[in-house]
Amino acid sequence: MHEIIKDIVQLLYPAPERSRYPDRIELQQVRKELKARRATAMAAAHQKAAETDPLEDKLRELSALKAEIENQIALLVAYGRHFVRPRPYQLSTLADATQLSISGVRGISNRRSTCERVAEILGRSDVKGNIRPPVKPDLARSLANLARLDPKPP
Results as ranks from 00 to 15, higher is better:
residue 56 E to S: 12
residue 133 P to M: 05
residue 127 V to W: 01
residue 103 S to R: 15
residue 138 D to V: 12
residue 84 V to R: 06
residue 110 N to W: 05
residue 30 V to C: 05
residue 91 L to C: 00
residue 112 R to G: 08
residue 128 K to N: 09
residue 67 A to L: 13
residue 122 L to V: 01
residue 37 R to Q: 11
residue 73 I to F: 06
residue 13 Y to F: 11
residue 95 A to I: 02
residue 20 R to C: 10
residue 62 L to M: 08
residue 131 I to M: 02
residue 128 K to L: 07
residue 127 V to K: 03
residue 51 E to V: 14
residue 110 N to P: 01
residue 8 I to S: 00
residue 91 L to H: 05
residue 11 L to D: 11
residue 39 A to L: 13
residue 81 R to I: 03
residue 58 K to V: 06
residue 40 T to Y: 13
residue 117 R to L: 10
residue 79 Y to R: 11
residue 121 I to G: 06
residue 107 G to H: 02
residue 109 S to M: 01
residue 69 I to H: 08
residue 48 K to R: 15
residue 67 A to W: 09
residue 111 R to K: 15
residue 26 E to I: 14
residue 52 T to F: 14
residue 6 K to D: 12
residue 103 S to Q: 15
residue 117 R to N: 06
residue 30 V to A: 07
residue 49 A to P: 05
residue 106 R to N: 14
residue 74 A to S: 14
residue 127 V to F: 03
residue 94 L to E: 00
residue 65 L to A: 11
residue 35 K to Q: 14
residue 72 Q to K: 13
residue 86 P to Q: 04
residue 35 K to T: 07
residue 50 A to S: 13
residue 110 N to R: 12
residue 87 R to I: 00
residue 55 L to G: 03
residue 68 E to P: 02
residue 44 A to S: 10
residue 55 L to F: 09
residue 121 I to N: 07
residue 132 R to A: 10
residue 120 E to D: 11
residue 13 Y to I: 10
residue 55 L to S: 05
residue 57 D to Q: 13
residue 47 Q to H: 15
residue 139 L to T: 15
residue 132 R to H: 12
residue 150 D to I: 08
residue 94 L to A: 01
residue 146 L to I: 13
residue 49 A to S: 15
residue 71 N to H: 14
residue 109 S to C: 07
residue 146 L to C: 14
residue 115 C to Q: 10
residue 70 E to K: 10
residue 143 L to I: 09
residue 62 L to Y: 11
residue 103 S to W: 09
residue 110 N to C: 06
residue 130 N to G: 09
residue 108 I to D: 01
residue 27 L to T: 00
residue 120 E to L: 02
residue 120 E to R: 06
residue 109 S to P: 05
residue 135 V to G: 07
residue 37 R to G: 01
residue 24 R to T: 04
residue 5 I to D: 00
residue 142 S to R: 15
residue 33 E to M: 08
residue 99 Q to W: 10
residue 36 A to L: 11
residue 28 Q to G: 08
